[in-house]
Design a protein around this nucleic acid. Structure first.
Lengths: 343, 343
DNA sequence: TAGCCGTTTGCATTCGAAGTCAAAGGGCCC
DNA sequence: GGGCCCTTTGACTTCGAATGCAAACGGCTA
């Protein structure tokens, strides 16, 4: 029967019992060697570690998770839409978690129904917590809550119910942006918004409107995009077709700002920023390519992801804090896509 | 004692025993309901599913993994360097896996030592397989092999030992690219290479050299970059400083092609493609932004990721095939970053 | 040497689902 | 109604590590 489980090139993987037998100690001793703070003598520890090494033993995280009720897994839910913003966030979240001994179970969402599946899957995998950087309905959030899974929302929140969330407040930076534009003689503003159901879009649009209001101004025109590069081209076309007089165009994210700049330059023969100034939101890496060097409102992603991970970990350590929205101020970054008003 | 385990808002999560009790059946019956092909009557099944629903029950994947020796987890190892190529690959791999009922455990590598840690971690988590799209040494690969974890390399392979790997062969497309350039009168070629230890770089460079040789040509000059956007600027500077006469510049990836184009245009007042033609490799989305519309050699990522996932799954289903390198041909995509030679 | 106390150690149980095996149920024919 | 076979069911064991508890050990003092 010893031969039974043996298949492929791999012999059966070593368990704590194998290590114990080889080291001449009990299984408990092996277990204690891999948990720091456990009561074990130096001598035994050394013996065990040597045996473990020779057997290529590593504790089985699955079995450990079963008994400790802690999987050390966190689910990260992101939209699969290739917005250059998410990869940066995902990469940083993963590293923050890794530093704290937690692995990331990744869920990408293509269409809304994927989210429900993801929510069931992560529940099956006993993840210790969830970070959602994708759209989540109230019901879906309520499900996580009912299941008792600590959750932190990234760049979204519910205004009518408490939840841990980390987001970027662009208000002050937007004011700085608008001040900068007005100082440069701009009076005619237009905006390319994101999807109407996007909370981030609403926040950014409001911030722009309020900032304009402090100068007694308002948006002359608005068009809607999908946050994607291509959508901005169409939005620009429709704005120009309507003969909108504008000297400054603010886009709800950098991808669209880049799309708008390209469309203005290539299809309409306009110069950015001489004929028209363009600004965006996010501060993605590609926005700093020399063809664009966007004026933008940068999200402090490093600080945001760190806080997000900290919040989640605090929560699951049991230090229950009342859920709160934590805002990080966006940073106004002056690039060369904005300049003096054309006349 | 019933109160003991109860903490936070969450009551203890339901187990198969709870569901069994509620439905008035045995635990075995519950288990069978969640495995298709198992012997269970319609009537019992209905009862159980109803009870499961009301208790919000989902089988515990951790416990299941322990007994079945299958975690349904795959480790994906990617470099954390923000090259716009990886996010596309990662996103597609995750979706391919999801369709087949496998979840992705993500490992991002910042520096080489992270890889060793990742290899231990994924071993602890009993992942069923590994996809490595990051650098892996021979020893590291051997470790995976010794542990019996099916592994597929993405865009890399070992020439001296068998391994499953999926990669993109740019030979034919590169020939097409060079033919296209030569037809347009180009005789003076330069190249910005990637890191010297990059296998992909070597393959691409060789492909370029061979294609040039068919026309009796060779590279006039070469500079080295890091695959990153910024590195191409410096490479361009050094090429021009050396007064290299070149009419066509081939870059080892799209990111550097974009960096090179921007540098040529903005810092040296040259027109692309009038004064100099620039081409890249990868076919990343950003390369198609109107400021660049790169001529490039696209990797068929969808087919590559699909094949990668299929290979891994076949391997762990036990249909052992002898490991093999599978190449997908790159596709020559003519953009507007190349044109007639300046003279 | 006996007695005490703090440290190490091992035994036995536990986590939750899967699967083996034997028993029970159900339908049908004679 | 008895016998037969196929389907469905439940009792019990298993996977691998963690941990409460009690026993063993070691060092020290009286």
């Amino acid at each position: 029967m010893a031969q039974e489980g043996q298949h492929k090139s791999a012999r059966r993987r070593a368990t704590s019992y194998d290590v114990a037998a080889l080291a001449g100690v009990s299984q408990s001793a092996v277990s204690r060697c891999f948990k720091d703070g456990a009561s074990i003598s130096q001598k035994t520890r050394a013996k065990v570690l040597k045996a473990a090494e020779s057997l290529n033993y590593q504790p089985n995280a699955i079995a450990r998770g079963l008994i400790t009720q802690r999987s050390n897994l966190a689910a990260v839910i992101v939209s699969s839409q290739i917005n250059f913003y998410y990869p940066e966030v995902l990469s940083q979240l993963t590293e923050q978690f890794a530093q704290r001994g937690i692995r990331v179970l990744l869920f990408t969402i293509q269409n809304p129904s994927d989210t429900d599946r993801a929510l069931d899957e992560l529940w099956r995998y006993q993840v210790d917590g969830v970070i959602s950087a994708s759209y989540l309905s109230r019901d879906q959030y309520a499900l996580l809550e009912a299941r008792g899974i600590p959750t932190v929302l990234f760049n979204r929140f519910f205004s009518d119910r408490p939840s841990h969330s980390t987001w970027c407040d662009p208000s002050d930076a937007t004011q700085a942006l608008v001040d900068h534009l007005v100082e440069n003689g701009h009076q005619h503003f237009a905006m390319i918004e994101g999807p109407s159901d996007s909370q981030v879009n609403m926040i950014r649009t409001r911030a722009v409107e309020r900032a304009l209001a402090t100068h007694g101004l308002q948006l002359r025109a608005r068009a809607r995009g999908s946050y994607r590069y291509e959508s901005a081209g169409q939005a620009v076309d429709s704005l120009l077709r309507a003969r909108t007089s504008m000297t400054a165009l603010i886009c709800a994210n950098d991808m669209m700002a880049m799309g708008a700049i390209d469309q203005l330059r290539q299809q309409h023969g306009l110069d950015v920023p001489r004929d028209i100034s363009v600004a965006g939101f996010d501060g993605i890496g590609a926005g700093q390519f020399a063809s664009y060097t966007l004026t933008t409102i940068r999200q402090p992603i490093a600080r945001m992801t760190q806080h997000t991970v900290d919040t989640l970990l605090n929560d699951l350590e049991g230090d229950e804090k009342t859920p709160e929205r934590v805002a990080f101020a966006g940073e106004f970054m002056r690039g060369s896509s904005t300049g003096k008003a054309s006349d």
